[in-house]
Design a protein around this nucleic acid. Structure first.
Lengths: 234, 234
DNA sequence: CAGTGGTCTAGACCACCGG
DNA sequence: CGGTGGTCTAGACCACTGT
């Protein structure tokens, strides 16, 4: 009845445990046997069971805490992994030639909403860059970006006329924390003209804020051309 | 400052390596020293270095292959982890009472687009369910769902009048693979009425398809009320 | 073919925290 | 307090794959 022979690698142990979880052997919130017991049961080292349980915890199936043990979590959709490709790579993957256009570049004092969002002193100097990414003749994504000059003084010297701030920043500046927000917006007049759609059209927007060691680095507002989809599989 | 002292845990080794990577000690695509060498250098066991490098690979910073070694990957935005909360939990987290309304429930033959999407024999019997999730009086999310009856025969007996198919399926059916697509759509007449917005309003849509062991289980089309944002931090 | 990462083992110590 | 998971070590074998 064991069927699964004898689990030998951590993947097999994980599979065996997952099967038992699916079979409701332990109810929601119940405690699984301690690692040592499972190790003995399966005839493997405790570290192997640990690896298997760590994987299940990573996937959100169980919750582990010292002393409290390993508990079954209520079912939830599995966390998905969202790959954030470089715009250029993304466009080139479609086969179309990548085109980049710089629309504006100016140094200014951080507007109120930006200071608030980044936790920046009001009026701190930032570099604002607006540009357009296109797949051949077709607009792909409009980018509006604000770079904190205190954090990235070198940006003052970067022209951004051939390389997008997106790409430049990735190479020039280390990041340590990123927040991404996805929403839907209606095209205003400017976006409509840029992306070649009617005013009011539904567009997908990604906003990304980046920090490094607690200090804000940059904020980007990326608006995608219609039809754009973010797809993740797992 | 603490200095890097001598890295002792795998986290410290990871941090030390990351610092060296950020300092461009190894160029893009270059090979890092083998685990054994790093272990000797840091005075830790090879398994510890392995853990640290595995973490960096997980984060997309390096690429590891047997025999080929560990190589520096070109910079890219870090993969984000997208948590997919249960709608009910999400609503309740706002403090508002969760309301659920069943709008339609009917067995029908899979329409063409659905068969194509799921890789289903054309005309296969599916159960279609439409419902609305709300936060108190405010509409939160419209859900349209198709359940493959061959995969989930028990759905025929589920009324879905109190428990959403979302929640029911999570408990009743094991999944093994999920694909999520996020896009922006303009509200059609039906959605506008349901969500209480003007026709043509920009709405965020999540489509989720679920398989189990290669066989399609269900497809959901979730349309969120205006203002909804998907936020992920990491 | 040989060097690399991937994994397992057995044992150990420790941090944490629930009772 | 004592049981639990978290981690480290030293050593070993193996799978894979570039050269």
């Amino acid at each position: 009845m064991t069927g699964a022979a004898r689990p030998s690698g951590w993947r097999e142990v994980r599979a065996a445990l997952l099967a038992r979880l699916r079979a409701r052997e332990w109810g929601e919130g119940a405690r699984l046997p301690p690692e040592a017991a499972l190790a003995a049961e399966y005839g493997v080292a405790r570290a192997t069971v640990n690896r298997a349980l760590a994987a299940l915890a990573e996937e959100g199936v169980v919750d582990r805490r010292r002393r409290a043990g390993t508990r079954v979590r209520p079912p939830a959709p599995p966390p998905a992994r969202l790959a954030i490709p470089l715009v250029r790579a993304e466009v080139e993957a479609t086969g179309a030639p990548y085109r980049y256009t710089l629309l504006a570049r100016e140094e200014l004092a951080a507007p109120e909403w930006l200071s608030a969002r980044l936790g920046l002193p009001s009026g701190a100097p930032v570099l604002h860059v607006a540009c357009l990414h296109a797949a051949g003749p077709a607009p792909w994504q409009a980018e509006a970006r604000w770079i904190v000059l205190a954090a990235v003084p070198a940006a003052r010297e970067a022209p951004f006329d051939r390389v997008s701030p997106n790409e430049w920043l990735l190479r020039a500046v280390p990041y340590s924390e990123v927040e991404t927000a996805i929403s839907a917006v209606a095209a205003d007049a400017r976006l409509a003209a840029l992306l070649g759609v009617a005013e009011g059209a539904a567009l997908l927007r990604t906003e990304r804020t980046t920090w490094h060691e607690g200090r804000p680095v940059t904020h980007a507002r990326l608006t995608h051309a219609p039809g754009y989809r973010i797809v993740t599989r797992g």
